[in-house]
Design a protein around this nucleic acid. Structure first.
Lengths: 339, 339
DNA sequence: AGACTTATGCTAAATCTGAGTATAAGTCAC
DNA sequence: GTGACTTATACTCAGATTTAGCATAAGTCT
């Protein structure tokens, strides 16, 4: 059986924690060699540019009984974390996603996962590092209003991409997609279309990864025609991250997953800040309180927090019973007001 | 490289159409041999019992440029259908999902897909056959009220499963899960928890597949202690179907995917019936009309349908412009009234 | 003490939802 | 052709939910 008809499966994890009101993912700084560690111990190709990547490793079909167990094992080895909540995101399998494939290596499939935890569970003594996810997707953070990068860089670049379309029809298609994904031309901004936006930017050649994947060797995004749009990642890891953000923003609406990111007790403001961090937008405080309290998502503990400078707040905990009362317990987000 | 460290990837498609107000999926009646057609043309093991299965086939890493292209190619070969809308669902990789694995074969991964189309696109001259999806998941259809199978078979069987738990704590855990998944003990029925329910039934050993996978050879579900719960499928295809139903019921809320299942123009009642078929519940007609009309999802064509016995209805079409107006254009379902 | 910060209670207006009434415009049996 | 029946469509109304504020409570900081 030739190399080219073999398949290797890599597992990738977006490991998320929210600390200091900032959603952070665990990244490894690494060279862009293959996902695959050859089983025969042969030398890996020398790493190219160092670049951020998600923790990942191959599925060992002989050892790993399930995909999730394989993922947990790899994360433990690479980062020292014993992950709790885990959710599968998507499986990517386009040819030549991995640079090694182009050199005649085996076909690579990568399965993306999302894991939620708290930063304090991380052991030391590891090369892993927490980094704000908005470093990679800066246009997704609307907490301080419309991100500048949108008007200053993205919009002009996307307009240019529309203009270089083959014909009028193709241009119109591009315009429609851009308008819907980025809330231009009168369309509203939709906080859930994170993946749409990243993929559009990739297709338009506006993120570093696109140029790299098209064959320019060793490109890191620095030398793009536009200034680089967000921090690039190796392989398709940024696409996986975008998938994770999309999925999570959608999921908090109908499942109480936020609590995986919080300590056992918390104030309502802490809870709100975490939701805002994920959603990338601010929420109305009083309404948020009503939502989670009347919605039965939380219950007071009677204890007060050592307030950080104001009236002390009551400490709440997640109310597990809500699961049997309501079909979809979560925190729905308002549609973003237009700016 | 030994067989056991190799990986084969199978692609499975839930191909759905709604005809005569019934959601139907394309199935192939086939023996339970492996997903894998050996590349060297060696003989396959003799088929066991004939059983329904989804169209599926291996990813050929040398030929298929993307997973989706591979899927389309396989579907075309097996069923003659050129699928339109396609969406990836989930990747399953537990060891021993496939009977052949237990016999020392390679590790099998299967990637599930959902495809939406209309039945009339199917060519003849194929072994494929449309079957109502509720044949496989009969407890999911509440259009004529609460399904009888729930009270008569499922509830008693689940209660028995709770009772045989190891200790009181385990029993309580089981009860909680059952109550939430099946809307018992005061919890509401949640039409979206299709996958939860199937996996619970599998874990409780109440579907034919569970017994088969535990090692009983050639079991087809007929000889179960309880009468069989829904029609079984080969491998984990019923789990993939349950995933598809869950996903689709969730998605019609915020994306206008229903229209993939309808002809270009349709009456509002036709549209409603399709949504009801997917959701497995009845909707209030006047409110549904208001929802889709005022929501901008459809626009009238001015033409009238050749009424099937009543006042003729106007023909509508999907209003593409809604995509740029609203972030989440879809048909939200009411929470099911309790029975 | 007074400014400032955060927590929490409460309300008015707008919108959305669920359920029903009423009327229009066809088909079908006879 | 008339009356029963079927489906389509318009409109209403009450209640729930959502959005956006105002107002007050209870701390910290200078």
């Amino acid at each position: 059986m030739s190399e080219s008809s073999q398949i290797f499966v890599g597992l990738n994890a977006v490991i998320l924690a929210v600390t200091d009101e900032e959603p952070r993912i665990l990244t490894l700084r690494r060279g862009e060699h293959s996902v695959v560690v050859p089983a025969d111990g042969s030398a890996e190709p020398p790493p190219a540019e160092l670049m951020d990547g998600l923790p990942f490793g191959p599925l060992d079909p002989a050892r790993d009984r399930t995909l999730e167990l394989a993922l947990r094992a790899w994360v433990r080895e690479q980062t020292g974390i014993e992950v709790g909540y885990v959710e599968q995101l998507y499986t990517y399998g386009d040819r030549n996603r991995d640079p090694l494939e182009r050199q005649g290596g085996p076909r690579i499939l990568s399965i993306g996962y999302l894991s939620l935890c708290r930063e304090d569970v991380v052991m030391g003594a590891t090369q892993a590092r927490w980094r704000p996810w908005y470093d990679y997707l800066p246009w997704e953070d609307w907490r301080d209003g419309r991100p500048q990068i949108l008007d200053k860089q993205l919009e002009p670049a996307l307009k240019a991409w529309i203009d270089v379309a083959e014909d009028r029809r193709a241009a119109q298609l591009r315009r429609d997609r851009v308008d819907i994904a980025f809330g231009l031309g009168g369309a509203p901004w939709d906080g859930y279309r994170v993946l749409d936006r990243y993929e559009l930017l990739y297709e338009a050649g506006l993120v570093g990864e696109a140029m790299r994947d098209r064959g320019a060797p060793e490109a890191t995004g620095e030398e793009l025609p536009t200034r680089r749009l967000g921090r690039p990642m190796c392989f398709d890891h940024r696409r996986i991250l975008a998938t994770a953000v999309s999925r999570l923003r959608g999921k908090i609406k109908y499942r109480p997953v936020v609590f995986e990111l919080l300590p056992p007790t918390f104030t309502l403001l802490q809870l709100q800040r975490v939701v805002e961090a994920l959603a990338g937008q601010r929420l109305h405080k009083q309404n948020f309180r009503r939502l989670v309290e009347k919605g039965g998502l939380v219950e007071g503990t009677g204890k007060l927090s050592a307030g950080t400078g104001g009236r002390p707040a009551e400490l709440f905990r997640f109310r597990h019973g809500v699961l049997r009362e309501r079909p979809t317990p979560g925190v729905g987000l308002p549609s973003l007001p237009e700016h």
